[in-house]
């Protein structure tokens, strides 16, 4: 009877993750197209999708790899772009995923979507089979879509240019959604200022310079407000 129970849990996982899978199909296709258009071999597309498995970072990574960016720049960019994942540990039901190997996979595949789908009060009682199947189905669909996108990318004639604007649009849209959390303009304005300053300092290294300036400025502002509160 345990097999039947596991099968039910896997089916339940699929029902939970299905809407998220449908939603990422266009993004996966776009990533595959981008890999091919950036001049990387088509088979890097599924490798990238399977091994990194962090949507927006993968889009950025394609550009970094195509530009032959230094590995240190890739590491620091990944750290800052994916820093939000640190907080997913606070609510993700990893205690339900027993066994070292399963725990390793579950943390590896802790995407924004996996976090969002398990951020419900009921998830603290979900079975390992259900949690892992949510993550694994999403992983499988993502890699398949990116692979299909790479195939699609090879069909696009070279006269069509500018598809990489999808990456800009993705970051702009994610930025607008992140803005809605606080609806405060000084922070995005500060970031834009850091980006412009960084381009003026060095176009080549603008990403690291801008992110470094921005995080440093945030930490400074934090310490200044704490000190002001203490003095007051």
């Amino acid at each position: 009877m345990e097999d039947q129970g596991t099968r039910d849990e896997v089916a339940a996982g699929w029902r939970i993750v299905f809407p998220a899978c449908a939603a990422v199909v266009p993004l996966g296709l776009a990533l595959g197209v981008l890999v091919v258009q950036s001049g990387l071999a088509w088979w890097w597309a599924p490798v990238l999708a399977a091994v990194v498995f962090a949507g927006s970072m993968e889009f950025l990574l394609v550009g970094l790899l195509a530009a032959a960016a230094p590995l240190a720049q890739i590491a620091v960019s990944t750290l800052l772009v994916n820093f939000r994942h640190v907080f997913y540990a606070l609510s993700f039901p990893l205690h339900r995923v027993t066994g070292g190997g399963w725990k390793a996979y579950s943390t590896f595949a802790l995407t924004d979507e996996a976090y969002a789908l398990t951020a419900t009060p009921e998830s603290v009682r979900w079975s390992r089979a259900r949690i892992i199947s949510i993550q694994a189905f999403f992983h499988l669909v993502w890699v398949s879509c990116v692979l299909a996108g790479a195939g699609l990318g090879m069909l696009i004639p070279p006269q069509i240019v500018g598809l990489d604007f999808a990456v800009t649009a993705l970051f702009v849209v994610l930025g607008i959604e992140a803005y809605k959390v606080r609806r405060s303009l000084p922070v995005p304005a500060l970031a834009l200022g850091c980006a412009i300053l960084a381009v003026l300092i060095s176009r080549e290294n603008m990403l690291l310079i801008a992110m470094g300036l921005f995080v440093a400025a945030l930490i400074c502002s934090r310490f200044l407000t704490v000190r002001r509160r203490r003095l007051a």
Binding site: S56, L60, G63, L80, V81, F83, R84, V86, F87, D164, V167, T168, F171, V172, L174, G175, A178, Y179, V181, R182, V187, P188, L190, A191, L192, C194, A195, I196, V199, R203, M206, L207, A210, M211, F214, V215, L218, I219, R222
Partner: peptide, 22 residues
């Protein structure tokens, strides 16, 4: 960390968008 978590995402996305347009 809580302070950074609230403020970092919007700024990082602005910087990434600017980076793609460099």
């Amino acid at each position: 960390l809580a302070y950074l978590e609230q403020r970092m995402p919007v700024g990082i996305m602005v910087i990434l968008a600017a980076y793609t347009l460099r």
